[in-house]
Nucleic acid binder design. Structure first.
Lengths: 237, 237
DNA sequence: GTCAAATTATGACGCCCCGTCAAAAAGTGT
DNA sequence: ACACTTTTTGACGGGGCGTCATAATTTGAC
């Protein structure tokens, strides 16, 4: 990506994250740079395309975290826990990128943006699902998991994806979660992910306490790797 | 609600659903009625408030469906299946309202709207969680479910909520789901919900086939009740 | 039926945003 | 120094937001 485009993105990102999609306007981006509005339009045909470009950066980072998680040694369930840790880490440490990902599922970004960048996003998403699917696949091959007949690894992944995504979105968009009796959604999410594994008979069986201990240890193990990935990605673009 | 406000909402609803939040403008609503823009502003201070008012209608409907589901006789797991059926029914038959609910978690509706209507929304949400929690509570009291220590019914509900919400949002916002190996997300969602129950040891244990049969029969049983609720609610407002 | 007071409706206005495009500026090669 | 190409500029038309002085309508007292 050209230097100019990167400059534009670095100006647009804080606007988007501090004041939301509505507040991101070409005029505002232009006025915060040494360029006029027309110049911005030479690089991005509309603000949706800027958002998409920012999302590409975020999803690249997410995939790198997933790749690191998946390549960990150990049993399939341990490796799945590593992916879970990557998800939690991404939301905690790259909350910006998480929110931009969410934007993609909300606003009508897709109508106005280039097919090329859309495909890039789709490829990252497919790639992430694929990475997690390899863990499920390994579990099936090693006999640790016997999925329901006719249920392929990606469909298993879908469940974990839904719990992670659903939990995090609900938690960050329902202010009164504590008041309705859900004081610690992160703990609840971990327990549900573990219960779903148990429900599929994924070996070795773990009770909620073992799983939470596993998650904590996995977090510690991967923390420095993850942080390194973040910094190296930030340098790239 | 006054007659005028209802008129405005009935004009705004199709605009919102056909052309999205961006396209909903006070000018456009006004031009489609026999009133001027200023009159619209006498009833709703901004378009966000209109969206919130539409969401109230939808959530009222959702809660009515949940109430009907929860009051069904039978074991706790059967009753939970009824709630699941209500969720599926809501998305299928009130897709409009489902999409408006989603808007609430996306756009910055909350900054610009009245606290009163916000509270109404929150109350409906709390009420829905509460209804489902009663089923979980009944399961605990009857001994069909032994939740992890320190995990209250709402936290259990949170997992099912996350799967339902997450699955449906992901499915409706990731066009290429089939291409990545998830041909029938509805079936996958049911299987995951069932596996989560099994993972908590919720009795009676069901395999995926028993659960899907249960869901189908529950749908048939409740279909006419649900349709009746829809029509009676539509008359109200 | 009349009229003044209260309520409600109107739409022009100022401000901001989008995306365009002709004109200006800067850069390039000879 | 000059012609040609590339890049930048910002004014412009179209449109949305929210306001508010003015106009129309309703109300109710006599």
């Amino acid at each position: 990506m050209e230097r100019r485009a990167r400059e534009i993105l670095s100006v647009a990102r804080p606007i988007l994250l501090e004041d939301g999609f509505q507040a991101l306007s070409m005029d505002r981006v232009a006025s915060q740079m040494e360029y006029a509005k027309g110049t911005i339009y030479n690089h991005f045909p509309n603000k949706e395309e800027i958002v998409l470009a920012l999302a590409v950066q975020g999803m690249k980072l997410r995939r790198a975290l997933f790749a690191k998680a998946v390549e960990q040694p150990g049993g399939s369930r341990h490796r799945l826990a590593c992916v879970g840790a990557a998800c939690e880490f991404f939301v905690s440490n790259c909350f910006d990128d998480f929110r931009i990902e969410q934007l993609l599922r909300q606003v009508n970004i897709w109508d106005k943006t280039s097919e090329h960048r859309q495909n890039t996003i789709r490829e990252y998403e497919t790639s992430c699902i694929g990475l997690v699917s390899t863990v499920v696949q390994a579990a099936v091959e090693s006999g640790e998991l016997q999925p329901p007949p006719g249920m392929d690894p990606p469909e298993i992944v879908f469940g974990f994806w839904a719990i992670c995504y659903g939990s995090q979105v609900l938690a960050h968009s329902s202010p009164g979660l504590k008041e309705v009796g859900i004081p610690d959604f992160g703990r609840a999410m971990r327990i549900h992910l573990n219960s779903l594994c148990n429900g599929f008979g994924w070996q070795p069986f773990m009770n909620w306490q073992q799983h939470i201990e596993l998650m904590d240890s996995v977090h510690q193990q991967l923390s420095s790797d993850f942080h390194q990935i973040i910094t190296s990605q930030r340098e790239d673009q």
